Computed example of a mutant assay.
Amino acid sequence: MNYAIAYVVYNPTVEQIERINEISFGHPVYVYDNSETISELPYNKDIVLVRNGRNDGIAVGLNILLETASGDGRSHIITMDQDSLIDDHFIKKLISLAGVDDREIIVAPMHHTGDITYDKDLVGKSSQKLYVLTTMTSGNLLNVQFAIDVGKFEEKYFIDYVDHEFCLRANRKGYKVVISKDLKMEHSLGHSEQKFSLLSLEFVPTFHAPVRRIYMTRNRSDVWRKYFAIYPRWVLRDFMRFNKELLGIVVFEDNKLIKVYSIVAGFYLFIMNRWGKAELRYLVNGAKK
């Protein structure tokens, strides 16, 4: 298979760049670096690096890496974020799963995140696979030409819900999003560290920064609007997840007022049809951290 591992990063740590460099010694690697400053540790010279000195958001980065892969004649990319860990065994196992079904646009691992159950989003299954409506971006084997046919990733979102919107759109066009039962990947959402219980409900607070709450609220609102008529159960489940997140913020997280304000700001931006990077005037009292 003619593949490449595609990272979209933002202010990566020295350790994260070292891991990317290490992977590049055995596999072709593309990196889209959204950092405004240049890290002291350089990337391996064999890495295909795109860096503009500004933060363009994850969707722009993914789309440019898709176009780069297509221009290089690659059939697939493995989409990665800087936090996730992979090794040679994971990569070889993942690429071995491609090509079984000619409508599979994504083959993903089981992401272990603490509180997401993929069975709720099932549209089908086999002995080794789950066919789902959505999955997260990291660790996915993505068919390059199928992704271009779907329309690539939604750049107006900047960050958050880019993966879910893409997967829903792909399903709508008849492509399949597949999770392998044999492949697992640990993934953290925000700074989730422990579970709490309240009124028989279990909470795993993510402690996302207020600015992330702006993007999450604005973008998920657009996903609800676009897909409620097509996938009402998915949208209703995400709406219930939003309410549970809001309750978790109020009860368990710090900076409650700022985060609630950020959620209101996200709804406002959605209603006003304002997209891309959030304007600084919405990031008050430390919300831009």
Rank of each mutant, 00 (worst) to 15 (best):
K92W: 05
T13S: 15
Q16K: 12
Y261C: 02
F267M: 10
I179E: 07
Y118P: 00
S138H: 03
I214E: 00
K184I: 05
V14N: 07
P42G: 02
K259Q: 11
T206E: 14
L257A: 11
D83Y: 05
A229P: 13
N285A: 06
K226A: 05
E15K: 15
I116K: 07
A147W: 14
S192N: 15
D238N: 15
D83L: 02
H27A: 04
E202L: 09
W234E: 10
V251F: 04
D115F: 15
R218C: 02
V100I: 14
D121A: 08
R213W: 15
R233G: 00
Y215I: 13
S188L: 11
T117N: 07
E253I: 07
S126F: 01
L85A: 04
G53Q: 14
L41N: 08
Y3R: 10
E165V: 09
K184E: 06
Y261E: 13
K176Q: 11
I249Q: 02
W234P: 00
D46G: 08
I271P: 00
G139A: 00
L283H: 10
D163G: 02
L246T: 06
D119Y: 11
P205E: 05
K195A: 04
V31C: 05
G57V: 08
Q194D: 14
E253P: 12
D254T: 13
S35E: 05
R54T: 15
F228A: 07
M216F: 14
E22F: 11
S24L: 05
K92S: 09
F153I: 07
V100H: 12
T68A: 04
I179M: 14
Y43N: 08
V8Y: 03
G53A: 12
S75N: 12
G61M: 02
I230L: 08
V107R: 04
Y161D: 06
Y7H: 05
H164G: 03
F196W: 12
V50D: 06
D87Y: 08
G151R: 05
V8C: 05
E193I: 15
S127A: 13
V177R: 12
E154Q: 09
I116N: 02
Q145H: 13
A287K: 04
R225W: 12
V132F: 09
G124D: 10
K45Y: 08
I105M: 12
V211D: 09
D83W: 03
Y157P: 00
C167A: 11
H187A: 02
D88V: 06
R241M: 11
I64Q: 13
Y268L: 07
F267A: 02
G53S: 12
V48L: 10
E104A: 14
L280E: 15
H191I: 10
R169S: 11
G61N: 03
V260T: 08
D182H: 15
E165R: 14
T135E: 01
R241Q: 12
K92M: 09
D101T: 14
Y131T: 06
G151I: 11
V31H: 10
E186T: 08
Y32T: 06
R74F: 03
G276S: 11
K129G: 01
T137K: 00
D121I: 09
K184V: 07
H76L: 11
L141I: 03
N255I: 03
L66T: 01
V235Q: 04
I17V: 13
H89R: 13
A278H: 06
K277V: 06
G26R: 14
L280G: 03
R19V: 02
A59C: 10
K93W: 05
E186V: 09
G266P: 11
A59K: 07
